[in-house]
Design a protein around this nucleic acid. Structure first.
Ligand SMILES: [Zn+2]
Ligand SMILES: [Zn+2]
Ligand SMILES: [Zn+2]
Ligand SMILES: [Zn+2]
Lengths: 130, 130
DNA sequence: AGCAAAATGAAAACCATTGTCAAAACGGCC
DNA sequence: GGCCGTTTTGACAATGGTTTTCATTTTGCT
């Protein structure tokens, strides 16, 4: 069930704190000598995503990016828009709010997406310096 | 500055309550006899988006969709995942929460994206019937 | 009218993602 | 080990939304 290629992809994600694209992951793996095809990277990411082991989101330009989060349960992300560093955050209030908003308009099966973006402390430093 | 083509695109969006894709808008305009090219539709949407006159978001499969919202100020959306019908919603609590989360981790220039999805009442009806 | 700048659109280029399919790896089983 | 059916792999082709290109048309102004 769990193949070595899939584990290799998972390992790359586990070693990164930021969201990574498939192409990105593929490039890194090839650069580090791994023998793997781009198609397989996509398939591994799809499988991991289906299994709920990684989070997926879309960048502004439509590219899918993936991340292996430490938190298994439902959560959201605070992402640095310069370096991509990501922190997992919880928001009970937001959960309740989303549910209430849906109910208020008679919507059922309510879900939501919430992401927070900003400039992380170290990137703010760099910006000031450079 | 404001050209007729752009206004035509804006008008199509204004007549729709749901988020629409560029291809979608183009097809409708052509079907209704308008003489316009796909490139121009894309350019008009880009311009309207840059001007902050329309909202943009990405579907799960990465397609960009646009909507002319009645509310000019910052707001979010409750979207029916079956028919696309969209309601604009405000969430002061969410605004505060996002800001606080960013600050808490030392992030600056904090922004956020929040969308709520569900099945609208009429689609729920249809689902029950069909 | 005359002319420069802006807008248009058909077609080509881009690029992430998915489909195809034959070869390779795996897993029992003898 | 050898055999065989199943699964995985990956080079390559195809897809599809979006952007570029560039020659033509329209607009704006005198
Ligand atoms: Zn950063
Ligand atoms: Zn949530
Ligand atoms: Zn609906
Ligand atoms: Zn907000």
């Amino acid at each position: 069930m769990t193949t070595s290629r899939r584990q290799a992809v998972r390992k790359v994600l586990a070693a990164s704190t930021s969201f990574r694209s498939a192409q990105d992951i593929y490039a890194e793996m090839r650069a580090s000598g791994a023998k793997i095809g781009l198609t397989t990277v996509y398939r591994a990411l799809q499988a991991l995503s289906d299994a709920g082991e990684i989070d997926v989101l879309r960048t502004d330009d439509g590219e899918a990016v993936y991340r292996a989060c430490a938190t298994v349960s439902h959560h959201h992300h605070l992402v640095c828009r310069r370096c991509g560093k990501t922190v997992e955050v919880a928001g009970p209030d937001v959960e309740r709010w989303a549910e209430a908003v849906g109910k208020e308009h008679g919507f059922t099966d309510v879900t939501h997406t919430v992401e927070v973006f900003g400039t992380c402390p170290s990137c703010a430093e760099e910006a000031k310096a450079g």
